[in-house]
Simulated assay, not measured.
Amino acid sequence: MDCRGGNDADIEACEISYEAGEDLAALHGCEDRWDNYMLCLDEELRCANRTWTHDNDCDNERDAYNDCIN
């Protein structure tokens, strides 16, 4: 997703995606791993060349969340 020049529809799509991830985490009892992943993204995400990136800084948290829900 572009991190510059978004509109209301882009923001709404992002919020829906977040809520779906949160719901999936709750369904599988993985809320703590979801929270850790979201906290990492909150701290590490930055806009580079109009794209959100964390330079793989949150891969461990993402993998732990994915392992839990799968």
Rank of each mutant, 00 (worst) to 15 (best):
G5V: 03
R4K: 09
L45M: 14
A20P: 00
D35M: 13
E19V: 10
N49M: 05
W34C: 01
G21W: 04
E44A: 14
A13R: 12
M38W: 08
C40Q: 01
W34L: 06
I16W: 06
A13G: 14
D57Q: 15
W52A: 01
N36P: 05
L41P: 01
N49V: 05
R33I: 00
Y37M: 15
S17K: 13
C14R: 14
R62G: 04
D55A: 14
D32S: 13
L24V: 10
H54I: 00
G21V: 03
H28G: 03
L27S: 09
W34D: 01
N66I: 11
G5Q: 02
T53N: 02
R62Y: 11
G29R: 08
D59N: 10
M1Q: 10
C47L: 07
R33D: 07
L41K: 15
L24Q: 07
E31F: 08
M1D: 06
M1K: 07
E19Y: 12
W34I: 00
E12C: 09
C58W: 08
A48Q: 14
N60I: 09
E31V: 14
Y37L: 15
R62M: 11
R50N: 15
D10G: 10
A25N: 01
C68M: 02
E12D: 11
G6S: 02
G29W: 09
D2H: 02
L41S: 04
E44T: 12
A9Q: 04
D32M: 09
C14Q: 09
G21Y: 07
I16A: 13
T51W: 06
D57A: 15
A20Q: 14
C14V: 11
E43T: 13
N66G: 03
D35Y: 09
D23K: 14
D67A: 09
Y65W: 07
A9G: 03
C14H: 10
N60F: 09
A13M: 04
W34G: 02
N70F: 11
N36T: 07
A26C: 08
S17V: 05
G21M: 15
Y65K: 00
E22N: 10
L27P: 00
C47W: 04
E15P: 00
D63Q: 10
R4Q: 05
N56F: 12
R4N: 06
I69G: 04
Y18D: 01
A20D: 15
D2W: 08
